[in-house]
Nucleic acid binder design. Structure first.
Lengths: 229, 229
DNA sequence: TACCGACAGATTGTTGACAATCCAAACCAT
DNA sequence: ATGGTTTGGATTGTCAACAATCTGTCGGTA
């Protein structure tokens, strides 16, 4: 039932278009690996599965192409993106630079309220970690990064990271990480926030780049193990 | 050459769809300002103008939305993007960081042939400049930057810059620069290439960021004058 | 057997019509 | 006159059928 809800289009809220809803549904399937990397995507089949026509389905696929979750070839079709270690490195290298930049900007521009919210997020995460609750760890990490990126105040940086890069990143992370490293990661988050609060963008950027590099190593290890089979 | 053609399979055939052609046509109109910034875009009218149906037209508009050349609102429609000084600054700040990164990578990874081609491009541009031929100046500059970005060897960096950011950038540049500053710009290009050739990514990056900052100042000046009317 | 080309099935690209939604002008009530 | 409501026209979202293209199979030929 709950699983069904994830794969079913809600036809009762006409605020969103069918294309948007299809996009959400298909993207979730891809990120979770229900649509396996490299597998072929059939427009008609997808449309049928969600009970809509091919028009909105095609629109969703175009958006997924721009997010690099699928690869489309004209007159041939679309496939779910393949995960590779090379691309992972490429992706993280770019992410590292961009989020470093976000930190520097955030250290300059962050608003008092946004900073406070960020600190409260740290508190609540440390608290739930102490309780042994790791369920929201992954989401919490994403939330942390999102907030800093938004605090940068740069529309294009935001769009590039959240609107483009992060979707593919989430796919790698979802499929390649099982247990996270919550204690260390949250401590690193805390230090980054402290640097931002102190207005030290250079330090915040450095810490963030290191933090992300740790994440890359972690994910790469998993991906290697995954591809070894 | 002929032998090459005989033994090569045309895997790189454009295979242009109507959507692709419409995209090219509409994008050119927007960048040139024939479709004025802020003006409304009518799907049916566009489709009629190019003698195609609304389907491919919509696909083209979706792509233009991802390239930030238009703004789309569900059930309302699309408008050509507005140019603003704030966004120009935002855009160039991001571009600066990314192309700086491209320089560092290029200094490490560039292939001998790519380097040679780059140097030949410099030669031919200096030559045509000496002749007083400024017609291809704009294209030449774009070409220079593209080559360095490609030489970085980073797929995602390439996609982010060329696939996303540069389209909007070209719109600003096309509409906001009349006479360029060819002599200085080409000299700056030359120095950047020299730094890359010497494997000094740090220097190349610094020079590139300065070079881009000059471009920003130039474009901003024009944009201000344009908006003063 | 290996290679080349025609054929059939399936898939994508495109179209025109229909439904849902928004915008603006006209209308009514106060 | 002004504010809110209604209604008509225009525009976007969606659909199902048609056309163009590709993939893989089959048969023929060296």
């Amino acid at each position: 039932m709950a699983l069904d809800a994830l794969n079913t289009i809600d036809t009762e809220t006409p605020a969103l278009t069918l294309a948007d809803k299809a996009l959400q549904a298909i993207q979730t399937s891809i990120i979770k690996g229900e649509l396996a990397p490299g597998s072929k995507i059939n427009e008609q089949m997808l449309a049928q599965r969600y009970g809509i026509s091919r028009g909105p389905t095609r629109e969703a696929l175009l958006t997924l192409e721009r997010r690099r979750l699928i690869v489309r070839i004209p007159h041939v079709g679309a496939r779910v993106a393949q995960l590779s270690i090379d691309e992972l490195g490429d992706l993280y290298r770019l992410r590292s630079v961009l989020e470093g930049m976000a930190c520097e900007l955030a250290a300059k521009h962050i608003s008092p309220t946004a900073l406070m919210q960020l600190q409260r997020l740290m508190d609540s995460q440390e608290e739930s970690l102490a309780k042994g609750d790791t369920y929201f760890q992954q989401d919490g990490d994403v939330d942390f990064h999102y907030r800093i990126i938004r605090a940068s105040g740069s529309k294009h940086l935001q769009e590039t990271l959240i609107g483009n890069l992060y979707h593919l990143l989430r796919m790698y992370r979802y499929q390649c990480t099982s247990e996270t490293r919550p204690t260390k990661a949250i401590a690193e988050h805390r230090r980054i926030v402290e640097a931002i609060a102190a207005g030290d963008g250079e330090l915040a950027s450095l810490l963030m780049r290191r933090h992300i590099e740790q994440g890359r190593i972690n994910t790469e290890k998993r991906l290697k193990a995954l591809q070894a089979e």
